[in-house]
């Protein structure tokens, strides 16, 4: 296949970026999207040019490190699929593909397609845990959790922290990310105790970090590789209001 790539190139946070055109004419339909970028990078390296920097590690859809805007869509055309799991069979010979970084105020560009998502770690640090030290835990089966509760907590916990929800949202809100952790822990008996404090701290931190407000467009779930439900956001709002009422 022949692919006409328009790739975002940007030296660093302080310089302006631009789209650069590259033609690849030996793309195989079985290649993954990232292998196609590898192919481009090999070509650039051989010509003595700087390869395109992009984020990736596991290449199997679970580490959450990859993620770019492909033709304006976070992680590209397939629903609930990470960039690394997208394959070139989703494109046609002769296609033009625009590749740009996730863009959000809280995710500054580091170089080319790489962005800084450490704000997500900061949100977790604000309270995304159960405060238990190593050694304090009671016997595991002394905390009974019904099958459905556990499965539902898992559905929330499955988030891979890639940031597609933020990149997709017109407000660059981190509501889906933050709420998935809040509601996972709120659904479990061992996480309920700290729920109010956790929710308030995480929501405040999210706002301090420059993420926008959620206006319920629900675009985030569509692009989420794990199909995390927007109902988590409803639960977060419920936990937040409950905490505020208590005060």
């Amino acid at each position: 296949m022949k692919i006409d790539l328009k790739v975002w190139r940007q030296k660093n946070q302080n310089t302006k970026g631009h789209l650069e055109s590259y033609i690849l004419d030996e793309v195989d339909a079985e290649m993954s999207f990232l292998e196609m970028l590898d192919m481009l990078n090999l070509k650039l390296a051989k010509r003595g040019e700087r390869p395109v920097e992009f984020d990736h590690d596991c290449r199997e859809g679970i580490c959450g490190q990859c993620g770019v805007m492909i033709n304006g869509i976070a992680h590209g055309p397939l629903k609930n699929t990470t960039t690394c799991q997208l394959h070139m069979r989703s494109f046609k010979d002769g296609d033009t593909i625009y590749v740009e970084p996730f863009k959000a105020k809280a995710f500054p560009v580091i170089r080319d397609l790489k962005v800084d998502r450490s704000a997500f770690d900061d949100i977790i640090a604000a309270g995304g845990y159960i405060s238990v030290n190593t050694g304090q835990a009671p016997e595991a089966n002394s905390i009974l959790i019904s099958h459905d509760e556990a499965e539902s907590a898992f559905d929330s916990a499955a988030c891979i922290g890639c940031g597609a929800c933020v990149a997709t949202c017109k407000n660059a809100s981190a509501a889906l990310f933050t709420s998935s952790k809040i509601s996972q822990l709120a659904k479990l008996p061992q996480g309920k105790k700290e729920s109010s404090k956790r929710t308030v701290n995480m929501v405040n931190r999210m706002e301090d970090l420059g993420f926008g407000h959620c206006t319920n467009t629900e675009a985030c779930q569509v692009e989420c590789p794990q199909d995390i439900s927007v109902l988590n956001i409803a639960q977060m709002n419920y936990e937040y209001n409950k905490a505020k009422l208590k005060k």
């Binding site: 238990v132 835990a137 089966n141 959790i145 556990a150 061992q190």
Partner: peptide, 21 residues
């Protein structure tokens, strides 16, 4: 002990309908 610790941290392991691991 690891299973105890992980459960206390909120790791959602698979459960029976009765609530046991």
């Amino acid at each position: 002990s690891l299973i105890d610790q992980a459960v206390a941290q909120g790791v959602p392991f698979g459960r029976e309908y009765s609530g046991y691991l």
